[in-house]
């Protein structure tokens, strides 16, 4: 079976084995003229370990696709953790001729390459669909003297040292970019803010509840529980509209700041996919987002439906990548739009 696919032999050892596996269940493309259909199990790569955000997205999608009877072939979730995603991306990029190998993705696909963590970026893959999105929320402890987003901006203007702001990930990642972009749009030098990175949004919020930091930025759904209990007070969300989980919290735009930040989630495929293949998957994921069980589960996770087809998604990716590069440049984390 190796003989049939010389390409695989040339590929990295890792991809070799799985390419050979795939061969075990049949060839790549359909020979007859009909619309393209996968003829072997669809591999949905989560470029992270079991249990993380990408893994949840991949396993949820896989389950909905299979249980809804939307696919004839099984959907296998394969974890390729490491390098903040770059291991999984390299794995997919190295098998351009395997149209049944997709991966789930979100903003790090632009941020990690910009920060120098991956040689592949979103342009090396075929966008398939954006599925859902979530917003960032900026919060303060319940007894904080900071009254509102505007109040926090005033304090930052006066002396950025006054306000330490926790986030769940390192500088140059989603939390930091969402914060820096917002304060920059509010007219404050983003390099001066005191951003304190913690290990995950949960830890960051705990530190805020305990009053060890003055504010925290994290995903809106993650914060919903502590907002409901009153331990944390939300100042603003980063979406274009208010978040369904935090209906009383104004958006940044309502607060007079022209900035939005999406934690979008989507699916991408290997480079060099044909139009028929893309069309097949677009239909498939459209159907998936219309399934009742998908709606129920994404709602529970606090995600908003925000479907985009391949082309629109591609344009969105280009735009959000440029935006992120600009913010990272202003913070001084990268030197030019090519990243560091």
């Amino acid at each position: 079976m190796f003989r049939a696919r010389p390409v695989a032999v040339a590929a990295a050892l890792a991809s070799l084995a799985l390419a050979a596996t795939a061969c075990g269940t049949g060839g790549g493309q359909q020979e007859d003229g009909g619309p393209w259909k996968p003829d072997r199990p669809i591999e949905l790569i989560a470029p992270a370990a079991t249990g993380g955000g990408w893994d949840t997205l991949a396993r949820t999608s896989g389950r909905v696709l299979e249980e809804g009877g939307l696919v004839d072939e099984p959907v296998q979730v394969v974890n390729k953790p490491g390098g903040g995603g770059s291991i999984g991306w390299a794995y997919v990029a190295q098998t351009p001729d395997t149209p049944t190998r997709l991966f789930v993705t979100s903003p790090p696909i632009s941020l990690v390459p910009l920060m120098g963590g991956s040689t592949y970026d979103h342009e090396d893959f075929t966008p398939i669909a954006r599925l859902a999105t979530e917003y960032m929320v900026y919060l303060v402890p319940k007894d904080s003297p900071i009254e509102s987003w505007g109040d926090m901006v005033d304090r930052l203007e006066e002396d950025p040292r006054q306000v330490s702001i926790a986030g769940g990930s390192s500088p140059g990642s989603m939390d930091h970019v969402a914060l820096a972009g917002a304060v920059e749009a509010a007219g404050i030098d983003p390099t001066a803010i005191n951003y304190v990175p913690f290990d995950g949004g949960g830890e960051a919020m705990t530190q805020a509840v305990g009053g060890h930091v003055d504010a925290v930025v994290t995903g809106a759904s993650e914060a919903a529980g502590l907002v409901e209990s009153g331990d944390l007070r939300p100042l603003a969300v980063s979406g274009a509209e208010r978040a369904s989980t935090l209906p009383d919290t104004p958006t940044l735009q309502e607060e007079g700041v022209d900035f939005t930040y999406d934690i979008w989630r989507g699916v991408m495929g290997p480079p060099d996919m044909t139009d028929e293949q893309v069309a097949y998957y677009e239909d498939l994921f459209t159907d998936m987002t219309e399934e009742e069980s998908w709606k129920k589960q994404t709602k529970a996770l606090g995600w908003t439906d925000s479907y985009m087809g391949s082309e629109e998604f591609g344009g969105f990716l280009d735009q959000s990548s440029t935006d992120s590069a600009e913010i990272l440049m202003k913070i001084g984390l990268i030197e030019d739009e090519e990243g560091r």
Binding site: G200, T206, L226, D231
Partner: peptide, 26 residues
């Protein structure tokens, strides 16, 4: 608090969210 104390409880928390339960102060 609805905040995971460890990697393991983070996963547990994720599972509960999918099941429609928001663990936390309430």
């Amino acid at each position: 608090l609805g905040v995971p104390g460890s990697g393991t409880t983070a996963i547990l928390l994720g599972a509960l969210l999918v099941l429609g339960v928001t663990p936390g102060p309430m």
